[in-house]
Write a protein that binds this DNA or RNA. Structure first.
Length: 119
DNA sequence: GGCATGACAAAGG
DNA sequence: CCCTTTGCCATGC
């Protein structure tokens, strides 16, 4: 049925959004999710958290040209995944001027981006 | 169709 | 701040 196609659509939107994140800025899974309407149309149970998870799923298969390193979790920290060194992501962000605090996270107040945000 | 797993998030200890 | 649990849903075997 169109379910898997819907998810593909969802993933496309995720990539499109992530491509819009400017250098030196980050976006959280949840904020990205909130920008994309749920596949089914309505959002009866507050699917924001759920969709945030879908964003994570989509990012797991993202195309090469997507700046995946600019996506962090709701705490401004790098989400871990098996076989991947978070130091790389942190490094890429630092090269763009993103500052990490003592506790290893990004200050979202300063670096978080959303479509509504202006550089 | 059941069961485990996951680049999430919020809440509680 | 770290760790665990709970909610939710797509995916793969």
């Amino acid at each position: 049925m169109a379910r898997s196609r819907s998810m593909t659509e969802f993933a496309r939107k995720v990539y499109a959004l992530v491509r819009r994140i400017p250098r030196g800025r980050v976006a959280t899974y949840g904020s990205l999710a909130s920008q994309i309407p749920p596949p089914g149309g309505v959002d009866p149970f507050g699917y924001e958290r759920v969709r945030a998870r879908w964003v994570g799923d989509a990012m797991a298969h993202c195309p090469e040209d997507v700046p995946w390193h600019r996506v962090v979790n709701s705490q401004g920290r790098i989400s871990t995944r098996p076989g991947f060194n978070p130091a790389l992501q942190r490094h890429l962000l630092q090269l763009e001027g993103v500052v990490f605090t003592e506790d290893g996270g990004v200050d979202l107040e300063r670096f978080a981006w959303s479509p509504a945000t202006r550089r």
